[in-house]
Simulated assay, not measured.
Amino acid sequence: MCGFSGVLGAGQNTQFISDMLNADGVPTRHKVSIWHNKTVIKILQNEKYSGDVLFQKTFSPGPLSRCVINRGELPQYWLEDAFPAIIDKKLWRITQYEYRRRAGYNLSHLSPEHPFTGRFFCGLFGRTVVQSSIATYGRFINIWWRCSTKITRFKKADDETREEVRVSFGRPEQIFMQAWNLIISKRQMYVARLKKVAEMDESELTRYHASEMLRLMDEVGKIMEFDYMLSMKTLDHVELNPDGKLTMVFRSGIRITI
């Protein structure tokens, strides 16, 4: 259960969840083994936890062959309510949407020390914005966020040549604080917008995130310092604009440019 709530409610990646389970001493089904990232992923994607069963996930091509994943070679069959569910069906279903949504992000290095790694993008090219530093006599100075098109080891042959925009280290955290506090200061307007999204948006995942953001607005209020967990629960990604401004894109669909 903590894995599903961790991905949705806390916004954590599967590596963080496996590390947390190991740190808490939670046993696996084998009792003596440790939790791995792939183990958590298999649990999150296993429909049996919601009480349903998908038949013919794998098949044997021949009498002496090992089972292989069914990638459309044979029909599959979904049986609902095959046995009592361990988790709510809606929670399982939304977790699948969230997991697929994150497929385009590399969040393996996301941490409180690096809260925007893997979810900071160039608004012009769509490429990742990464940290870059200048080393002088073994010391690192002037740490910047830079579009990966401007860093030699990340460049691609078809990258366009444009004037570089750099973002100072620590600025994304400051902009997140400003964006969140702006939403809180204009609570009436954003509450009305979020309620509409939570009730009418065609995406079940977006409706869920809008409801969660409404709850967090009431619970958290204004913040005086960067809140990593709040950013994990509410923020989808950050976009760097050509004019140097940053756009905070929240999972509920709200976009704030500062």
Rank of each mutant, 00 (worst) to 15 (best):
V68P: 02
Q76R: 04
C67T: 15
N37E: 14
I17T: 05
N241I: 07
L240F: 07
I86K: 07
D158T: 14
K195A: 06
P115H: 12
L240A: 05
L44P: 01
M177G: 07
I258K: 09
G253F: 06
D158G: 01
G11C: 06
N181P: 04
I41S: 00
R102E: 05
Q56H: 09
S203Q: 08
W145M: 01
P27Q: 07
L79D: 07
I69W: 08
S133T: 15
A23E: 14
I17K: 00
S203G: 09
I223Y: 03
H114P: 02
T95C: 03
A10K: 10
L205P: 02
L124G: 04
M232T: 10
D52G: 05
Y137D: 15
I87Y: 03
F169E: 11
V130Q: 02
K186A: 10
N142C: 12
S148T: 15
L246G: 02
W180F: 07
Y190K: 07
M213T: 04
V220K: 05
F125R: 11
E199Q: 15
L79V: 15
H209N: 09
S33M: 11
T149Y: 02
H209Q: 10
M200H: 14
M229E: 14
W78C: 04
N37D: 15
T58H: 14
S18K: 08
V32E: 14
E173K: 09
R255F: 02
N241Q: 13
I143H: 08
